[in-house]
Design a protein around this nucleic acid. Structure first.
Lengths: 198, 198
DNA sequence: TTCATCCTGAAACGGTCGTTCCAAGTTCCG
DNA sequence: CGGAACTTGGAACGACCGTTTCAGGATGAA
């Protein structure tokens, strides 16, 4: 083993992930990545390959470290509908306040970009879509078994609806929609799922 | 009046609109616009100004000629819920089949792009959001007056939910989601609005 | 017809893009 | 200590970016 890397690859990837997240793949230049990470072009290319591979690695890191844990926690939550409400409350807050306010969701942003034509990008997006949908379905099945669900609500279909709702929240939050407005809208959408609500 | 334009500005703008719609603002070059429209840089700049202004004009044309008429027809539809179902059926078909399949919605794409930080772009997006929401609210009020609405559904809140649902459909359709899947999901979402559904 | 006015075509601007290359430096193994 | 293996810094590549400029052609008014 002759020489060792002088930097932490995952730390650099996390910086790149943030750039791609906030500005998008097309408008994030390699130069911007080198400036943000502190390392130079050679190290970047030697470690991650070209820009497309770097973006893919950033997308996959995002799914692995940010999206997947949330999906797993959601799927394993035994509370039923309250878990769904908590998920959306956290989503709205994360999108409207704090460090990542108005960044939207990195994956939803990728849907709308030119990069969505890339089969490997699409595979990441599809994988995340399935994860989130399956998590919602599990929670809705739990809710149904506990009698929380309004009659007529099918967990599989309801889960797809909730995923689209989450996409909508992510889209709308990027244009500066207020947290209060989104909380209210989400509450109205979820009210239709609960038994005894009407 | 010395000389007259040798081309139809709106025809050129429509070509540019399609490029921005399909590929996004960042990845559509002026060169691509000149190639698509057939006119050269000078005429382009003299007519529309720089790239930002061209993109804004394309966005506004999109709202004026494609989005606004649909919103107006929706708002004026006297049928209530069937109008909502027809809107979404048409949306899903337009996004999944035909000439514009998998292009998504130009406005939703703009939400996710870097251009959403531009105040003028954001004004266009907000205007469209309000138009669509108001149209949905009008239709839901009609539905309520005709007894079609499930008790507990507030037209104002339901309208916001439907807009987010539409955003979700637009996002998901760009990654190749099937029309059948989206039709089914939309149907499940709308079922919760109808009276006697549960 | 003359002329002022506008449009068109094409070349060119500086800047930035993603990517490659290579010399110099650093590290571990024997 | 010698040298192979690998990283690093930095220059350089051609291509493309958005934009400007200008000469020359076309047009309508007087």
């Amino acid at each position: 083993m002759p020489d060792i890397k002088h930097f932490d690859p995952d730390r650099a990837l996390e910086r790149a992930e943030r750039l791609f997240w906030r500005h998008g793949a097309a408008t994030t230049s390699i130069q911007a990545v080198t400036a943000e990470t502190g390392l130079n072009r050679s190290s970047l290319y030697a470690t991650f390959g070209d820009k497309r591979e770097l973006h893919l690695a950033a997308l996959r890191r995002h799914v692995r470290l940010r999206s997947a844990p949330v999906c797993a926690a959601l799927a394993a939550d035994p509370r039923g509908l309250p878990a769904v409400r908590e998920f959306f409350a956290g989503l709205v807050d994360a999108r409207c306040e704090g460090e990542y306010a108005r960044w939207g969701c990195m994956l939803v942003n990728a849907y709308a970009g030119e990069e969505a034509a890339d089969p490997e990008v699409r595979a990441v997006l599809d994988g995340h879509h399935r994860s989130l949908r399956d998590a919602f379905r599990a929670v809705l099945e739990t809710a149904r078994d506990q009698g929380q669900l309004a009659p007529g609500v099918v967990p599989g279909d309801g889960a797809e609806v909730l995923v689209l709702l989450a996409y909508g929240v992510n889209v709308r939050s990027r244009a500066g929609a207020g947290a209060g407005e989104l909380h209210r809208t989400v509450a109205a959408a979820l009210a239709g799922l609960a038994s005894g609500s009407r």
